[in-house]
C-alpha cells in the first residue's frame, strides 16, 4: 500500500540476490538506491524528532548531523558489517556518539593509524596512504583489499550523491 512497505519488500528481494551472488572473487555489487533512501529518510525524521526545528540549532550543526546520518545510512544500505569500510563507518559513528553523549559536543579527531609494515607497495606509497586516509577503515587493510573496498565505496558514494541530489531537487521550494 504505502511505498515504504513496497520498498522494504524490494529490499528483501534484493538482499537475497546479493546473498546469492556474494561468492565471487571481486564482489562489487551496486548498493540499492531505495534502501539507502529509506534509511536516510528515516534517520532524517528521527533527527528532527529529536531536535525540532525551532530548537536553537544552527544550520551548520544540522548539516553535520545530516551528513552523518547520510553516511550511516549509506553504510547500512551497503550491507552493514559485510564490508570493511561500512563496518568502520558504523563503528566510528557509534564511538563519536558515545563521545558526544559523555563530553559536551567535543568533536573527536579521528586519526587513522597507518602501520609502516603495510607500506610495502614501492611504486606509489604516498598515494595509497592518502587513499587509506580517505576510505574509512582503510588504515588496517592490505593494499589489494583497500582497492576492492575503495571500488565499493566509490559506487556507494556516487549512489548516495544521486539520491541526495534527487531529495534536494524534489523537496526544495520551486
Amino acid at each position: 500500500m504505502s511505498f515504504i512497505k513496497v520498498l522494504i519488500l524490494k529490499f528483501s528481494s534484493l538482499r537475497t540476490q546479493t546473498m546469492a551472488s556474494s561468492d565471487k572473487t571481486i564482489n562489487t555489487d551496486v548498493p540499492e538506491k531505495d534502501v539507502f533512501a529509506i534509511h536516510f529518510l528515516q534517520s532524517l525524521s528521527n533527527l528532527t524528532t529529536q531536535n525540532p526545528f525551532n530548537s536553537p540549532d544552527t544550520t551548520n550543526y544540522r548539516a553535520r548531523k545530516i551528513k552523518k546520518a547520510a553516511y550511516v545510512s549509506m553504510a547500512k544500505a551497503a550491507g552493514g558489517s559485510s564490508r570493511l569500510w561500512s563496518r568502520a563507518l558504523l563503528g566510528r559513528a557509534a564511538k563519536e556518539n558515545n563521545k558526544i553523549v559523555r563530553f559536551a559536543r567535543r568533536k573527536r579527531k579521528v586519526t587513522w593509524k597507518i602501520s609502516s609494515k603495510r607500506r610495502s607497495d614501492q611504486r606509489a606509497p604516498e598515494a595509497t596512504d592518502r587513499l587509506r586516509n580517505l576510505v574509512p577503515g582503510g588504515g588496517t587493510m592490505e593494499t589489494s583489499k583497500l582497492m576492492e573496498e575503495t571500488a565499493h565505496y566509490i559506487k556507494c558514494l556516487s549512489m548516495q550523491v544521486k539520491v541526495m541530489q534527487c531529495l534536494v531537487d524534489g523537496l526544495s521550494p520551486k
Binding site: 551528513k67 547520510a70 558514494l157
Partner: peptide, 21 residues
C-alpha cells in the same frame, strides 16, 4: 569530490529540512 558533494548536499538538505520532516 564525491565526499565534498555529500557535504554540500547535506547542507542544502539542512536548509530544506522541515519540509522533509
Amino acid at each position: 569530490s564525491l565526499q565534498r558533494q555529500v557535504e554540500m548536499l547535506s547542507m542544502r538538505l539542512a536548509a530544506v529540512n522541515p519540509r522533509i520532516d
